[in-house]
């Protein structure tokens, strides 16, 4: 037996002796858990109840996924199963429409006419992304801002690219000049 092990064993026995001595002192001086007084048991000590810490169930999300991004992608998949809207309006697709391009919005409701016009701007806001289309109907300018992932829209048809790339992100200059 090595010297180190021996000394460690000695230390352990010393510690156990000390703890036994300590508990004997405590039992000598501590009061009983209940005292009998005129036939009634009065508890003097409150029973220690350990608070139960609730444990949440394991996450259903795939590992290292942001919940909002996960949910957005999932809902986009649901609202746009063919991926056509994402192709048209997400920059990452590479063929994304730009301000100045002409598109046609076709609605699910048959009583609503399709709306063809120039894109004034795209407001990129995840699922709430909307496109503002402007056209002239019977010599009157009309602007329609449509949510891209709206279920009330049947389809977006791409008509033509702008002849020259627009230098602005929002083409408010298409509106008539108010100064007279």
């Amino acid at each position: 037996m090595s010297l180190a092990l021996q000394s460690r064993l000695q230390l352990r026995s010393a510690v156990s002796a000390l703890s036994a001595f300590r508990s004997s002192i405590i039992s000598q001086f501590s009061r009983p858990t209940a005292t009998q007084k005129a036939g009634i048991i009065i508890p003097t000590y409150k029973k220690k109840v350990r608070r139960k810490i609730p444990v949440s169930p394991p996450s259903l999300l795939p590992k290292n996924t942001h919940p909002i991004i996960y949910l957005t992608n999932k809902m986009k998949e649901e609202l746009d199963p063919t991926g056509w809207r994402r192709k048209l309006f997400e920059r990452s697709s590479g063929i994304c429409v730009r301000p100045g391009d002409v598109i046609r919005v076709i609605f699910k409701d048959d009583t609503r006419n399709p709306f063809t016009g120039t894109i004034m701007g795209i407001k990129r806001a995840g699922l709430a992304t909307s496109v503002r289309v402007r056209s002239e109907v019977a010599q009157i300018g009309v602007e329609l801002s449509v949510k891209v992932y709206s279920p009330s829209v049947e389809n977006f048809e791409f008509i033509s690219r702008a002849t020259k790339r627009a230098r602005r992100a929002k083409l408010y200059y298409l509106r008539p000049d108010e100064r007279k």
Binding site: I140, L144, S145, V146, K147, S150, S152
Partner: peptide, 29 residues
């Protein structure tokens, strides 16, 4: 449904007290 609409002008159609148009034609959208 979330669609936002805007026209370039303010326009109206004249009606009588019963809400029927006074004229016989409506020009424009």
């Amino acid at each position: 449904d979330g669609t936002v609409v805007r026209f370039d002008d303010n326009a109206c159609v004249l009606v009588n007290n019963q809400g029927e148009p006074v004229g016989s034609r409506v020009m424009g959208v």
